[in-house]
Amino acid sequence: MNTKEYIESGILEAYVLGETTDQERREVACLSKIYPEVKEELTRLELTMEAYAKAHAIPVNQDLKEKIFAEMNFEETEIPEVLEPKIISLWPKVSIAAALMLGVLALGLFYQNNTMKKQMVTVKNENQKMADEMSKDQKLIALFKETKMVKLKGVEKSPESLAMVFYDEKNASASIMVESLPKAPTGMQYQLWGIVDGIPVDMGMIDNQHENKILAMKNIKGKPAAFAITLEKQGGSPTPTLEEMYVIGNV
């Protein structure tokens, strides 16, 4: 893909002005993940509009802030303090105090433990997410070096759908990244087709858990002129159900 042309097409400007369709938005998001130069220009334009909006800021008063924040509740970050014991001379009182202290301590610890557990889960999730994103990005970069990217756009039936096929002509291998497809109904699955000499050739099934994944598909013999995705019964069909085609794109 010619990224210079893409950058100069004006679509990134439209994106930062909030002037793109959902499909275009997904396309910009996807391409900026793959091409660092697209990402860089996008970020610069975003910073530009941020500066522009700040220059046009209208001051807001503190009352409004308080009113808004009164509607919100936040994660407690401070850990409750353990009460200081008072000096009590009588043993019974001491034992009661001790019991109370233990109770408070236990409560405090329990609370602290819970908060920490919660934080751990958040951190773990974040980590996993970042690792997923990174491995996806690395795969994308490796793919991009040798392959042709074919954008499969949604047809009339599902204009919001979008997928990218990465096709390596030399090895005849292909992978797919689904940006958006309607959730496949139970018992159904999406199937990728390559159109070679006008005939659809099966390139394999697309896992229903395709989010944020790049899936390796079957190699294809011959020179595909286009790729398309249809919805088929679980496990696939020998020939595509054309009425159930969701996206298509020419090589």
């Binding site: 046009h56 800021a57 001051p59 807001v60 409004l64 808004i68 924040f69 936040f74 958040t122 974040e126």
Partner: peptide
Amino acid sequence: LKANQRQAYDYLYDNYAGALMGI
């Protein structure tokens, strides 16, 4: 922000509320 910390929302408001208000 995602951890729902009040300080983060304070910062967000102090730095961006005016720009959003302008729009």
